[in-house]
Amino acid sequence: MSHRTGRLAEEIKREVSSIIQMDMKDPRVGFVSITSVEVSGDLRHANIYISVMGNEQQGSDTLKALKKAQGYIRSELGKRIKLRHTPELNFKLDDSISHGVKVMKLLQEVKGEGERPANE
């Protein structure tokens, strides 16, 4: 990733996060955090990875709402970031945090089994 795409990804992350939290009124959008943004080399596309607090249903509902509001978010982003072409936004659910929590639970279970006395 070049320096320019990295800076643009950070700027998109900051602005889209602000738009979602301050401007969107959709009740399906729960507590969302943007985990990362990947911008293509030609700056035409941006993959926005989100993490949603809650269960899988809340995550899919939030993702549907964001995809429906994609045009609005892109137009707001275009007003805030001055570029020749505002990138096409593609929202994706980032399940790495929930995956990490599952791994930690499994590790704790394994550790707990290892600490039992031998006479049990």
Results as ranks from 00 to 15, higher is better:
His45Gly: 01
Ala46Pro: 03
Arg74Trp: 09
Gly71His: 11
Ser33Lys: 07
Arg14Asn: 12
Pro27Gly: 11
Lys102Cys: 02
Ala69Pro: 13
Thr62Cys: 13
Asp95Ala: 11
Ile73Phe: 03
Ser75Lys: 14
Asn55Val: 00
Lys25Val: 11
Gly41Thr: 01
Glu76Ala: 10
His3Glu: 06
Gln70Leu: 03
Gly100Ala: 12
Leu89Phe: 04
Glu11Asp: 14
Ile50Lys: 11
Asp42Lys: 15
Tyr72Leu: 15
Gly41Met: 09
Asp26Leu: 01
Leu66Gln: 12
Glu120Cys: 06
Ile12Phe: 13
Val110Phe: 08
Gly59Pro: 03
Val39Asp: 07
Arg80Gln: 14
Gly41Gln: 10
Val39Asn: 07
Val16Cys: 01
Gly30Lys: 07
Met53Pro: 10
Glu120Tyr: 09
Ser96Ile: 05
Gln57Cys: 08
Pro27His: 11
Gly112Lys: 14
Met24His: 08
Val103His: 10
Val16Gln: 13
Pro87Ser: 14
Arg84His: 15
Ser36Lys: 15
Ser18Leu: 13
Pro117Lys: 07
Gly114Gln: 11
Gly71Arg: 14
Gly78Pro: 08
Lys111Glu: 14
Gly100His: 10
Gln70Val: 06
Gln70Thr: 12
Leu77Tyr: 05
Asp26Ser: 10
Leu107Tyr: 04
Ile81Cys: 09
His85Cys: 01
Val37Thr: 05
Lys67Ile: 08
